[in-house]
């Protein structure tokens, strides 16, 4: 599904990612862990098409197509979803309006007709229940006045409604208390499927207690320095990032 080969990325003249290799197959969950400044968020931004990053080497293919050539909205319509670390507020635009506009632009891209208003309402109410959210959320302006936890849950709601194929979670656990973390994790688990893949970017191991990854990768200094199974995360938690960073230096 996603194939990253020797990816080098710079911001201005400064190289951030220095040769990333990663393969994600349908249905897999990959966790990418690493210390601050290792390039985790850069990776999520490059995959989703945020401006300001230059790919200097290597390539990223998604379902056989060159992902870096696509505009961000095309990536989204093709099924790439980024759950933001810091979701923005859009005053005056209701959640439900944004969701409908987004869903319709994706459906249009897929050659489907616009979603019927009643069907949409049924769909969205089901997802709201799934995430244990209050329906009132739908009619509030996007993220405006939301708590940190509500914003993150709102991201997962969007993911559940838009049904992407590749979900990138950028530090979705940051700023969540343990109860909110559980709800978010249950939301993610509920939409797992054999076709849907996840790339979870996280600083801490605790998210992985609730969403079991198939693979764990450690990112340091712009490279994946170690890969393994879920046990790697536990080892990291115990020994700290200096363990892998030193290892790389050695």
């Amino acid at each position: 599904m996603l194939n990253i080969e020797n990816l080098h990325v710079s911001v201005g003249d400064k190289p951030i990612l220095k040769g990333i290799n990663l393969q994600v197959k349908p249905g897999e969950i990959h966790a990418i862990m690493g210390p601050n400044g290792s390039g985790k968020s850069t990776l999520s931004h490059v995959l989703s098409g945020k401006s300001g990053y230059t790919v200097t080497q290597g390539q990223v293919t998604y379902e056989g197509k060159d992902l870096t050539e696509m505009a961000p909205e095309i990536r989204a319509r093709e099924g790439v979803f980024l759950a933001f670390q810091y979701p923005v507020e859009i005053p005056g635009v209701s959640n439900i309006y944004l969701l409908k506009a987004a869903l319709n632009s994706i459906r249009k891209h897929q050659g489907l007709s616009e979603v019927d208003a009643m069907d949409f309402l049924t769909l969205i109410k089901e997802k709201v229940r799934l995430l244990e959210m209050d329906e009132k959320f739908l009619y509030r302006a996007v993220n405006e006045g939301f708590s940190g936890g509500e914003k993150k849950r709102n991201e997962i709601l969007q993911m559940a409604v838009l049904e992407p194929k590749l979900c990138i979670l950028d530090e979705t656990d940051s700023g969540l208390d343990i109860d909110a973390l559980k709800v978010v994790a249950e939301g993610v688990n509920s939409i797992r499927s054999p076709e849907r893949s996840f790339v979870m970017i996280t600083h801490y191991q605790r998210l992985l207690d609730y969403i079991k990854p198939d693979f764990v990768h450690v990112l340091a200094h712009g490279q994946i320095v170690k890969s393994g199974g879920p046990e790697l995360a536990l080892e990291l938690e115990e020994k700290g990032y200096s363990w892998v960073e030193n290892k790389q230096a050695a």
Binding site: P72, E73, A76, L82, P91, V93, L98, A101, A102
Partner: peptide, 19 residues
């Protein structure tokens, strides 16, 4: 953010302004 949800930049600006 809006583009990442599938909206064109133009629709996004229009939506934000209308909001």
């Amino acid at each position: 953010f809006c583009q990442q949800r599938g909206l064109s930049a133009e629709d996004a600006v229009s939506m934000i302004v209308n909001g």
